[in-house]
Design a binder for these strands. Structure first.
Lengths: 200, 200, 200, 200
DNA sequence: AATGAATGAGCATTCATTCAT
DNA sequence: AATGAATGAATGCTCATTCAT
């Protein structure tokens, strides 16, 4: 059994950190099953047993990465709740800002994002929590009268999450578009729809 | 695509079919790596080597399932191109119908859908092709004046695909909502958006 | 169990013959273990089970080929015993003739020869029997005064067999030299040796 | 050539050595295909996976044994080139000595020799190289006037190699004759031939 | 005379994990 | 803090062979 509660000196701390980084890359590139401990550890210049000095198991480090992603994402979402009483004009700006922040986080943490959103078997749960938070935000905004009252915000949240996932995978991580741009397009689409009658 | 050089009678054809079905379920439940050939064939009442009578390898049957999903999805999407000159009123009905068909297909082929959309490493490519077809459909509709001209249809297609994926995973396959309902909500959201100014 | 004692019609006889030929080639090219029944039989346009109509097993057909080679080789060697009372002058001619016959047989039956001499685990025994026959022939010739009396004919026979094997593998089957030529060189070497004192 | 990237201490070095020895025996007795990794390692008191700590694959260790045999044989042959200007009387003694050394090497490395000469699919190439070296040695000796000028030394080398192979298989490895004896007989035969006219 | 269908038996290889040092 | 050495457990795949038709 490994010693997860072990006291660590500076060197150990550094090794642990390096393993985390290497593992993030490895899992992101090869997926959970094809990722090899031996490969992770050799990138850092250590041998296999050293891995077990810092982590219980392959699964354990993977879960740690999942959690890391999830908690950072959560922090980000929490911040994005709109304050009450903002002007209607500011609305789209604020939402756009929130989305931009999320995309920027994804872009700055490509590998971790790939793990959390696309590789982890827990991705469904991760997305669910994400969806719930968004739903709450949207509901608040709907009560404030910013949105149509006859739209199911839970459904909108699911949709928004879907769009974010897809956009992230195909346009963001590939480098085709930048956060600002994507955020703007999403807001436009979700606020005004496609109908030619809403042409500005 | 059976093993090259092997002739098959009715019994063999049946066995092959049964293996396909069992494999679809196995891959859907356990993912590619954890799926076991032994498990697949034993469901059918055969032994391991029999598998290799009908398929080259584990990878080969998986690819066959991927292709099966993709080609069926493609057929479905092709059919959904709107004819020219329909009334504006019919538009949303027609789109709703198309979405409903897709969701119904997903629902009737849950396991295959899970493989094609969520398990296959090719899912990105599958979604890309799907997106391209949708883009084409949308562009035709945009030229016909049904949609705002200042919206990037490629982006809308990506978004739509994202929504379809997410909705499928969280609301459709879980049995929470039915195709009709989901199709209607999507159309409403995408056509009119959230803005309270578009409240009907 | 197969039916080796089975009555066969003309068609069966033909199939059996074709399998023998295909098997000879297959074993010659790939060795015993890598040779595949499926491969043999498909060359003939039959399916695997048909093989067992004519042969007990993979091992059985291989043994049959071994025996075929051995008995043909034996016949050849028996014929080459020199008649008594030939002139000393004729001696080398007669030996040369015998060797030429052997090489011609090898050349006309390349695949079978490869099996008998180089592939079969029984090749040692085959060569032993061959050696014994040659020893007998040589002893008769030695008693007749053709050869030095202070040379061990058993040893000479072993040597001769060794030369024949090596020459066959490296110069004959590869097509570099012809039987006549090889036979002549061997006779020259074995009769007169290398010593410059025997220079003619 | 150990597994790339693996460091080894004294214990590992020892294990590797033991596996080499066990493998040599196993391949020699059962041939390449019937030799089992499990059998090899269990002789050493290790389990299957340990094998892969020291060797890439079954094929890799076999090739290593082939190379080992070949390089040792080459060293031996190189040493046996006769110095210039030796007395004619010494000639046969020197050749006899060389042959004796080779036979002694074979005898001391029975299993390795069986692999290199009789089991390896590369045996033909191994013998070819051996033949080339012998040819060179013989040519030098022929130029020095020790041998008849009208004999093709390449052919003699092939013959000599053939004799050595056969004698090794049937008389040496079986323990029937000793190196000294065999060397003497070969020299006698090759130098003076059988002809009763060369009777001493 | 031939074959479609199926299987038993076997074997190399991979990888996460442990432990004494 | 790190590692050399070793292993348990698992699994995909091959091939000769059988048998009912």
């Amino acid at each position: 059994m490994a010693r997860p509660g072990r006291r660590m000196g500076a060197v150990g701390e550094k090794s642990r950190e390096l393993i985390i980084t290497a593992a993030t890359r490895e899992f992101s590139q090869h997926g959970y099953h094809k990722a090899k401990i031996s490969s992770i550890v050799s990138k850092v210049g250590l041998t296999q047993p050293s891995f077990y000095l810092y982590f219980e198991s392959k699964e354990a480090i993977f879960k740690e990465l999942e959690n890391l992603f999830q908690s950072r994402l959560q922090d980000l979402t929490k911040k994005s709740r709109l304050g009450v009483g903002i002007h209607f004009n500011e609305l789209s700006t604020r939402i756009r800002e929130s989305l931009k922040n999320i995309f920027e986080f994804f872009l700055e943490n490509k590998d971790l994002t790939r793990i959390g959103l696309f590789i982890s078997p827990e991705s469904k749960q991760i997305k669910e929590k994400f969806t719930i938070q968004i739903t709450e935000n949207l509901l608040a905004e709907q009560s404030a009268g910013y949105f149509r009252s006859n739209v199911d915000m839970a459904f909108v949240a699911e949709s928004l999450v879907g769009v974010i996932m897809q956009i992230t995978e195909s346009l963001l991580l590939s480098g085709q578009k930048d956060p600002e741009n994507l955020a703007a397009q999403i807001v436009d689409l979700f606020l005004y729809g496609l109908s030619s009658s809403s042409e500005k």
